[in-house]
Design a binder for these strands. Structure first.
Lengths: 122, 122
DNA sequence: CATTAATATAAACGTATACTTATATAAGGA
DNA sequence: TCCTTATATAAGTATACGTTTATATTAATG
């Protein structure tokens, strides 16, 4: 989820589109004109931005007017800060990682080369 | 700059590394152990995160202890919000784009909705 | 109902990126 | 000094991604 969002923003053309939509709502052909890039290119980038939840669209006749969903962006950043602040053991998908991290304490880098049976001290 | 940062975060392995470093400082071999991935892989991802300014490192003997630079991240997000809020004509690199955007009004796709507070005439 | 306008989708292609394997460097011990 | 530990870098490879060209879809218009 965060991956999708940050990846979406981390591309120059999409970042420009976002910045433009932050100034005003625009349809595909406007973006095409303003950015001077091809229509499929705009369309494909918009798809990525929509999937990331950063852009929404409404229809007006044949046109699709796109908006930057600023509220959504703020929410995502807040959620990301929560994600970064939360204790690791409360995080889904980090169970194994957290176990290995706990087993690390004190030992740091000296544990992994104990592959030889004769190294094991009982 | 924003591109570099968001691209850096928008990759699953790097996001995990960041999240781990947010919990505690770790050296390369620790990350290797905790995430169960190869040493060059960790090293290369850390390079990207450092270049984005998200991770800093200090040396302890042969080890390089990595930290998540949370302050830097906060600064970047603030800068990004500024970037998104600023009027287009104050933005470097958007000169031509802004001209074409202005030339749009009335033409191409109708509308000219003032989303910018400074457009509001009192 | 055929045509045009606005946008989406598909296929093809080149470049970028993530990962692996192999090797290099740098700092501590023996 | 030679060896080990910790990390970086290089080269190779496969996949993901951005772009273009071509075509499909969907909604107004004549």
């Amino acid at each position: 989820m965060f991956e999708t969002v940050f990846k979406a923003i981390g591309e120059p053309t999409r970042l420009k589109i976002l910045r433009l939509l932050a100034a005003q709502d625009l349809c595909v052909c406007d973006l095409e004109e303003v950015l001077q890039i091809s229509q499929p290119r705009v369309s494909q980038h918009l798809k990525v931005l929509k999937q990331a939840g950063l852009v929404s669209e409404r229809r007006e006749a044949q046109k699709r007017i796109c908006s930057f969903d600023r509220g959504q962006f703020t929410k995502i950043i807040e959620a990301f800060n929560d994600f970064m602040d939360k204790p690791l053991d409360e995080l889904e998908g980090f169970e194994q990682i957290n176990i290995r991290l706990s087993n690390l304490d004190g030992k740091s880098c000296e544990r992994k080369q104990c592959t030889d049976i004769s190294d094991i001290i009982l």
